[in-house]
């Protein structure tokens, strides 16, 4: 199997979906001949032409709105936000239009919005956010967050085939740093299933996106403790049984995410565990997250805000020793 970067795997996935289905097309700012801000769509305009690689004005509301319209008409649009942060401008189209369409009119809205998210590169408050939790309170949307090149491609394929609007969070920090084997051709990684990134029996460490790698590094050598690392992959729908099964085995849980703390994915996972696996808990359910703060530009401040390997180690050790 060829080894691709996380970014190349996304590009490969886009190419496969567009080859596979003529109704699939991309739209976004400078995604055509320029290849996108991060070059994810580089070369696609050459293969598929400007008709299927739309360069749009700098207007996220229009991008998402056009995608919703096209999806309702039977197309399968893939919209790119230059940075996940800017989805806020398209929020109404997503939350009030796309998410409600099936409920109100019985219409499928098979669109994907790609959200380059996350910090760690001094991007500051408008280019580093992890806005996934905003969408978890809008029933009708699905949210995926791949952590590996293999999943990046497989989850993209499932997102494109899904009849619902799907937000696809691709972590910028992983784009060119992470390499992994990716199968050639089309394949789908089903939405709504966790991946056991590392099996264990003493503690469950739940993460997704780039934090899966922070998690793996943190528990690689924790004095022989067998920590199970769960990669959520899909934040909505959550794989409840996948999470609960691991917790029932270990009895101890740390939930890790780069997004801010309050009412985040971690809060939801913790609540699920408290409700459904209370009698299996052998310690408090712990979160390691960014504090409720904007992301600072300053590199030392940014690393103080984003969860670090040491912090995860300390939290796991504290809970293991509890």
């Amino acid at each position: 199997m060829p080894e691709l970067t996380y970014l190349e795997a996304i590009s490969d996935g886009l190419r496969e979906e567009m080859r596979h289905d003529e109704s699939v097309f991309c739209l976004g700012q400078d995604i055509g001949s320029f290849g996108g801000a991060f070059k994810v769509t580089e070369g696609l305009a050459d293969e598929f032409g400007a008709d299927r690689m739309w360069d749009t004005p700098l207007a996220e509301s229009a991008i998402v709105g056009a995608a919703v319209g096209a999806a309702v008409e039977g197309m399968r649009p893939i919209a790119e936000m230059q940075f996940a942060d800017f989805i806020a401008c398209g929020f109404d189209q997503l939350v009030n239009v796309a998410a409600k369409m099936h409920y109100r009119q019985g219409l499928a809205v098979p669109l994907v919005v790609r959200l380059p998210s996350g910090g760690g590169f001094s991007g500051g408050p408008f280019h580093s956010q992890n806005p996934e939790a905003w969408f978890l309170q809008a029933p009708g949307l699905k949210v995926v967050a791949p952590s590996t090149p293999e999943d990046a491609k497989g989850l993209l394929a499932s997102a494109v085939r899904d009849p619902n609007p799907v937000l696809y969070l691709e972590h910028k920090h992983l784009y060119r740093r992470l390499r992994g084997e990716v199968a050639k051709g089309r394949y789908e990684t089903p939405l709504g299933g966790v991946r056991v990134a590392r099996p264990g029996s003493d503690l469950t460490l739940v993460a997704y996106g780039a934090m899966v790698h922070t998690a793996l590094e943190a528990v690689e050598d924790l004095d022989g403790a067998r920590v199970e690392v769960l990669d959520l992959r899909t934040l909505c729908p959550l794989d409840r049984e996948g999470i609960l099964g691991s917790v029932r085995k270990t009895g101890k849980v740390v939930v890790l995410h780069e997004a801010t703390r309050s009412c985040g994915v971690g809060a939801e996972v913790c609540a699920l565990i408290a409700e459904e696996a209370f009698e299996d808990l052998d310690g408090p359910v712990v979160r390691v997250t960014a504090p409720d703060l904007p992301i600072p530009f300053s590199p030392p401040l940014e690393s103080a805000v984003l969860p670090q390997v040491d912090q995860v180690r300390e939290a796991c050790r504290e809970l293991l020793e509890y």
Binding site: L222, D223, V309, D310, Q311, R313, E314, R317, E318, E321
Partner: peptide, 10 residues
């Protein structure tokens, strides 16, 4: 260092 074994924990 954070995340290291230490005497108090046991």
């Amino acid at each position: 260092r954070p995340g290291e074994a230490h005497a108090d924990e046991h």
